[in-house]
Amino acid sequence: MISCAQSNAINEKEIIVSANRTSAYLPLLQNKKVAIVSNQTSVIFKENGNTHIIDSLLSLNINVVKAFAPEHGFRGKADAGEHVEDGIDTKTGLPIISLHGKNRKPQPDTLEGVDIVLFDIQDVGVRFYTYISTMSNVMEACAEQGIPVIVLDRPNPNGHYIDGPTLKPEHKSFLGMHPIPLVYGMTIGEYAHMVNGEGWLKNNIKCDLIVIELINYTHHSEYHLPIRPSPNLPNDQSINLYPSLGFFEGTPINAGRGTEFQFQRYGSPNFPISEFTYTPAPNFGSKYPKHEGKECNGVDLSTTPRQSKVNMTWLVDAYQKSPDKEAFFGKTFTIHAGSPKLKEQLKNGLSALEIESSWKVEIEKFKQIREKHLIYR
């Protein structure tokens, strides 16, 4: 057990991401044909500039034979949900196989000749953020082919709490594959241990899994992401508010896409006139934002204090402001929420606090499962 004094001392030290711990995983890659699951966040941090892990491994004569790309693509420039094509990395000449196109799970032929798979992607600790679904699919595919998986762990910027509605199995999708709360308070390495340990892969198959651990990290650590993990999470504020505002993805409400304040505001042309307005327009993060070119009456959350819960205040507010209540619920609202319960709670007029209180029993059950798979405290 780590004391409070020890915990504070650890937090004062620099967190070392697992990609930087080359001595811990390079020996496992020697004389192997290596495939890497990576994106723009997969870097080794250096004082004189960051190096993509693929470039580093190739410079060290590791035989990297291909890369797999998640949602948003290998360089992280595709819109949310956008089909990502296979291709060739122009810098290295390596084939890039999309895991967000026709196949979201590596196929046997794409793993043929691969001896080991290295997974290194920065996550944000939210169930409907699809990198954990990609990791689960990779683990399952590799387990079926008898290929080991190494996960290079990275900090969870939302790892300091557990909250939100729990996914019901009948609503499993790529936006949520396992029965967990929306915010589950685990690093991606811990999550991999849980997927394996709880038998959540198909037919209870087990992946030959190795997690390279972080140094100087606890779940109370505040971690600033130096590279945006996807086009519409540009800063700490957006990442912290994403669990609360991500529900708007399943509604007609704009959550800042098409502005430089993604997931830091929300609005609609159909809301009552307000002092704060903005007009979404196509940009780096969104080619076709909701309500493009229309003035949205909205709420600015760019200076909201750091959240340690999934805050339902804003979803309830938006629902109440929407003139067409039934049109509020888009086709993905239920799969974002993980069950139909949240939709029914909004329709029945429950307050934000009443909705948040309804999660507590399931969260306590999950915490018992989570506890078995924690690496960090």
Rank of each mutant, 00 (worst) to 15 (best):
residue 376 Y to S: 04
residue 63 N to W: 05
residue 6 Q to C: 12
residue 287 K to I: 12
residue 303 T to Y: 10
residue 9 A to M: 13
residue 25 Y to G: 07
residue 306 R to W: 11
residue 220 H to G: 13
residue 319 Y to H: 07
residue 278 Y to S: 12
residue 307 Q to P: 07
residue 125 G to M: 10
residue 158 N to Q: 06
residue 255 A to Q: 13
residue 222 E to P: 05
residue 127 R to E: 06
residue 296 C to R: 01
residue 286 S to A: 15
residue 35 A to I: 06
residue 208 D to P: 03
residue 338 G to C: 12
residue 28 L to R: 15
residue 364 E to R: 11
residue 93 G to L: 04
residue 292 E to D: 15
residue 316 V to E: 00
residue 272 P to G: 05
residue 41 T to E: 01
residue 105 K to C: 01
residue 278 Y to K: 13
residue 65 V to G: 11
residue 35 A to Q: 09
residue 307 Q to E: 15
residue 154 R to C: 05
residue 246 G to M: 07
residue 47 E to L: 13
residue 283 N to G: 15
residue 335 I to C: 10
residue 122 Q to G: 06
residue 179 P to S: 04
residue 103 N to F: 10
residue 3 S to F: 09
residue 148 P to W: 05
residue 317 D to L: 10
residue 43 V to D: 02
residue 221 S to E: 02
residue 352 A to Y: 03
residue 65 V to M: 13
residue 70 P to E: 00
residue 356 E to G: 04
residue 28 L to N: 12
residue 51 T to W: 00
residue 217 Y to M: 06
residue 332 T to H: 12
residue 151 V to P: 02
residue 282 P to A: 05
residue 208 D to H: 02
residue 341 K to H: 10
residue 276 F to C: 07
residue 271 F to W: 03
residue 182 L to H: 06
residue 95 P to Q: 02
residue 204 N to Q: 15
residue 297 N to C: 12
residue 267 G to P: 09
residue 289 P to C: 03
residue 68 F to A: 01
residue 187 T to Y: 00
residue 327 A to I: 08
residue 186 M to Y: 02
residue 70 P to S: 06
residue 354 E to F: 07
residue 210 I to F: 01
residue 218 T to W: 06
residue 246 G to K: 01
residue 111 L to Y: 04
residue 106 P to F: 01
residue 5 A to K: 14
residue 183 V to K: 02
residue 190 E to L: 02
residue 254 N to R: 08
residue 349 G to W: 11
residue 331 K to W: 09
residue 219 H to C: 06
residue 106 P to Y: 01
residue 52 H to W: 11
residue 368 Q to H: 09
residue 5 A to M: 13
residue 334 T to C: 13
residue 360 K to F: 09
